[in-house]
Amino acid sequence: MRGMRQGMGQVGQGMGLMQPKKFAVPLVFVAIATIIPFIAPSVYLLHVLILAHIFVIYAASWDILTGYTGQLNLGHAMFFGLSAYVVAITNTMLKTPLFLSVLMGVASAFILSVAVGLPCLRLRGPYLAITTFSFSWVLFLLASSAMIWLSGGEEGVRGVKTFIVGTIPNYYLSLVLMLISVYILYRIASSETGLILKAIKEDEDAAMACGIDTTRYKLLAFLMSGTFAGIAGAFYAQYMRIVTVDVVTLELSASAIAFSLVGGIGTIIGPAMGAYILTILFEGFAWLADYRVLIYNLIIVSFVLFLPGGLMSLRDLLRRREEEGGGVGGA
């Protein structure tokens, strides 16, 4: 396995020349994101951007399982929500130190991803979608009614401690956390592991015939996906300092799909972009919030119909134009 890329590399791909261009856009983004608190020190704007950072991690984590591996997850909010609740409940009721609560929150998302992932390994297509949806629905029912004594229902769990007080410090903390998470997910996705995940999405039987232990890789995708969503949920809990049923709603699960479709499924960067743009849009125009589910659905339908590859496919289109302009493109 280790020899695969190297052996293939000897024939030469000649793609190395693209490097400087590849880093230009992320660098510009990081530069602008770093100076935003200085040029626009609006607490409200920064708050919106912090939420955007959190949902970027959330969307990118959905993409590694569904976009890359092709395992349709309709209940991604369960990982985000469980982690957020565990942080809030342990921190406020058991009085565990925040640092430990966050660890427990992320660990709970990890454990949930094993618990959901294992039975899901044998399921394909619609069966998997229904199962993931049901798991998240159960969690929603527990939080909104059956275990309201623990979750506080709509009132939520209040008084969660925070790592650092203040919007600007939280802005930078969330920015760093987002950059690290997206970078890790992106690197995994572009590695040999990512290639294997894509092969499973394309044709699982064919991947098995190539000698790939698809069960192992699907479980790995579940674990990565659930854990990073858990990280996003844990950060959310300590930043908002209150956790309500919002974190396990169907709406939040649907948002992962809408974010990813807008950006471009199966690209990590696309869903991250989609989450960033849509979060700002929704928070910026607060009156839109009432129509959120409607708008999500409109977005999903229109992108599936008119731009199934999302914004990232526009980039590929531009690149192809460029190549053709340079006379490289074939017949």
């Binding site: 396995m1 280790r2 695969m4 890329r5 293939m8 290639l195 294997i196 000698g211």
Partner: peptide
């Protein structure tokens, strides 16, 4: 083609 060589280490 890379996927075909998945099981191999011999560059």
């Amino acid at each position: 083609l890379e996927l075909g060589a998945y099981l191999r280490d011999d560059r």
